[in-house]
Design a protein around this nucleic acid. Structure first.
Lengths: 349, 349
DNA sequence: CTGTTAGCGCATTCAT
DNA sequence: ATGAATGCGCTAACAG
C-alpha cells in the first residue's frame, strides 16, 4: 500500500470563493455566515463555489477580524479542601490558555456553601462578564440569581455542583448518582458474599452532590447486595477531625463493619481512624477525588478505590463551553462529558 | 463578599508595548521571539513594557501572520475491529477541527500488522507531511522507518501502540503494563479469596501492547493473589470465531475456571461461549476497549469490567502534539496523558 | 441586493 | 541595531 503522492496543500480563501463565484468578498461572507439579503440564485452560486473549492473558514482570521474578546468569572470557594485547591489551580492554567484566545477569566472567591453569600455574589457580579462558571448550590436564591444572569444574557455554567432547575446553559461535572452506584458496585464486588455493615460518610446531605452519591450508593447496595447493610449516612462536614471521630466511633460500635463509602471530603480523618484501628486492610474504603492525600492512602492500601472527576478537564470544559457559546460555535458533547474516573493503585496517573 | 467592579477589559497589543518602550514594532517582535540583534538595554526596556502591560501575544493573529499550514498523515489499519473503527472515526472528527486551524490530516490505511507493509508505507510517505501519527509495531524495519522520518525532520508520534526504542517524538496511548495490572487487581478483588484458574486471551503476543498487558496482569496475579492460577496466554488473533472456540475449550477443560482476562479483541466470541456455557455470571470476565459490543456485554452482566483508552482523546491528543511541535508551542503533559479508564455498568459514558 | 474598503494583531521583508 | 511598510484571511461599516 503506497502512500498517495500528495498534491498541493493550498487552502482556498474567501477571495478564491468570491472569484470563482463571480461575486464580491462581502457577498460570500453574507452567504457563509447566513446573513440576510442575498438572492437565492447568488446564494446557490456561492455555495457551489464553496463546495467546489472545499472552502473552510480560517478561524484564526475570523476571530481576529471580529476582534471580540470575552470576559468570564469563575466563582470558586474560599479556602476549601484539596480538590477545590486543585480545581482553582486548574482554572488558573485554563485562564492562561484562554488569554491567548482573547478570553479573560477572573477568579472570584466566595463562601459557596452559604446560599445567601453565593447568591449575593452572583447578583452583584460586574456586568462586564459575558459568562460565569459557578460551583452552584441547589437553593432558591441561588437559582434565582442564576436565572437573572441568564435573563441578562450572561452565559452561566454550573461547575462540579449543579442547580438543575435553574436556567444555566450547561452543567460541567459528573453524574453523581451514577458515581454513587459505581462505588456501590465496587464495594459489593470487593466484599464478595460477605455479610456485614457498610457505613456512608458525607460532608453534608444538604449538598446536592453528596446527597445524590449517597442515594445512588444505597440504591445499588440494597437492591444488588442484600448481604450488606448500609448504615444511615453520617455528616462529617468535610472536616478531617470530625470525620476521624465519626469513623472511630463507627469502628468501635460495629464489629461487623466491612466497608466505608465516603462521598465527601475529610479523608485524612478516615485514614487516621482506620489505620489506628488496625482494621485498615479488612475494611474496604472507597472515596472520592484524587488528591495528594487520597493518592497516598490508595497506594498504601488503606483506601481501595477512588472515584474521581478530573478538575483539569472540568476547568477546560467550562471555559470551552463558555467560549463556544459566546462566539456562536458548536461544542462537541462527547468531548465535554466529564467522566467518572475509577482509580485503583494500578492505574493512577 | 462582593464581586469586584471590573475595570477595562482591554488587552495590550504589540503596538502598545512598542509605544511604551519607545521602540518600533519590529524590535518588540525581535525581543518577544528571542531573535538576535537587539542591544541588551533595548531588550530590557521592551521586557519592562511587556511586564508592565501584561502583554500576551494573540495567537490567532500570530498564526494568521505566520501563514503557515500543516499537513499530517495518520496511518491507520485497513479494516480492523470496532476499536479501530471508532478511532478512525475520531481521527476524522479531529481532522475537521484541525482544518479550522490550518492543519490538514490525511488518513492512510495500511495493514499495520505486517511490519514490511507498514514500514513500506512510512518509507514512501509523501515529503509534504510535516508530521505523522502511526499505530506502530515494535519491529526493526518499522523502527528504522520511523527514525528516518524523524531524521528528515518529520514529527512522528506513535498512536495506541508504541515503538519505544525508535526516535518518535511522543507516544499517545496508555501504559499497557499498568492496564494489565489494573485488570489483575480487579480480577483478584472480584474473586475474593476463591481458589481457581484464570485464563488470559490475547490477540497476538507479538503485538507489544497485548504482550505488555499480559505481563502486567500475570505479575500482579501471581504476586498478590496466590489463590488464583493464571493459565499461559492463548492467542485468538483478534478473531471472534477463533476466540469463541478457545473460550469454549477453556470452559470445558477447566471446571475451576474463575476468570477470563482478554487483553485483545474478539470479544464477541468470548461472550458467545460464556453465555452458551451457562457460567457467564460466575466467571469474571474483564476485557479491553469500550465498543458497542463490549458495552452490551457489560450492561448484560456477562462482562464485569472494561479497561478502556479513549479513542477521541487519543486522536485529539495526537493532533495537538503534532501541531504544537510544528508550531513551536509547548504542550501540557497533563492534558496529553491518556488515561486508563475503568468502566463498570454504572459509570458508562 | 451587492461591492469597496479599512482594519484586527502580528510576522516579515527591506531599508536605514 | 532598529524602523517602516506590507499582507495574512476575514468581518463590518459604508457605499452604491
Amino acid at each position: 500500500m503506497t502512500a498517495e503522492a500528495t498534491p498541493l496543500p493550498v487552502r482556498a480563501t474567501l477571495e478564491d470563493v468570491a472569484r470563482t463565484a463571480g461575486v464580491s468578498l462581502a457577498t460570500v461572507d453574507r452567504v457563509i455566515n447566513r446573513r440576510e439579503g442575498v438572492r437565492a440564485k447568488t446564494v446557490a452560486r456561492v455555495e457551489a463555489a464553496v463546495a467546489k473549492l472545499g472552502y473552510r473558514a480560517d478561524i484564526a482570521a475570523a476571530r481576529l477580524a471580529r476582534g471580540q474578546s470575552f470576559r468570564f468569572a469563575f466563582v470558586l470557594p474560599t479556602g476549601g479542601n484539596s480538590f477545590m485547591t486543585n480545581l482553582t489551580e486548574q482554572v488558573r492554567h485554563t485562564a492562561e490558555w484562554l488569554a491567548g484566545q482573547r478570553g479573560f477569566i477572573d477568579i472570584i472567591h466566595v463562601d459557596v456553601f452559604d446560599p445567601d453569600v453565593l447568591a449575593g455574589a452572583l447578583e452583584t457580579l460586574s456586568p462586564a462578564y459575558q459568562g460565569v462558571a459557578v460551583i452552584a448550590l441547589d437553593h432558591p436564591r441561588v437559582r434565582a440569581a442564576i436565572d437573572e444572569l441568564s435573563a441578562r444574557g450572561v452565559a452561566v455554567v454550573t461547575l462540579v455542583s449543579d442547580a438543575p432547575s435553574s436556567r444555566r446553559l450547561h452543567y460541567v461535572g459528573i453524574d453523581n448518582p451514577a458515581a454513587g452506584r459505581t462505588a456501590a458496585t465496587l464495594m459489593g464486588r470487593y466484599l464478595g458474599g460477605q455479610e456485614g455493615t457498610v457505613a456512608v460518610i458525607a460532608g453534608s446531605l444538604s449538598l446536592r452532590d453528596h446527597a445524590e452519591r449517597q442515594f445512588g450508593f444505597s440504591q445499588i447496595l440494597s437492591s444488588e447486595y442484600p448481604n450488606l447493610r448500609a448504615l444511615p449516612a453520617l455528616e462529617g462536614r468535610d472536616d478531617s477531625e470530625r470525620t476521624r471521630e465519626l469513623t472511630a466511633t463507627l469502628l468501635a460500635r460495629h464489629g461487623d463493619l466491612r466497608g466505608i463509602y465516603c462521598c465527601g471530603a475529610g479523608n485524612r480523618g478516615i485514614a487516621d481512624a482506620l489505620e489506628a484501628s488496625g482494621r485498615a486492610r479488612e475494611v474496604v474504603w472507597i472515596t472520592h477525588e484524587l488528591t495528594q492525600h487520597t493518592r497516598r492512602f490508595l497506594v498504601r492500601g488503606t483506601c481501595d478505590a477512588i472515584i474521581n472527576q478530573d478538575p483539569g478537564h472540568e476547568a477546560r470544559s467550562a471555559a470551552r463551553v463558555l467560549l463556544a457559546h459566546c462566539s456562536g460555535e458548536p461544542i462537541s458533547p462527547d468531548q465535554e462529558r466529564i467522566r467518572i474516573d475509577i482509580f485503583l493503585r494500578d492505574n493512577l496517573p
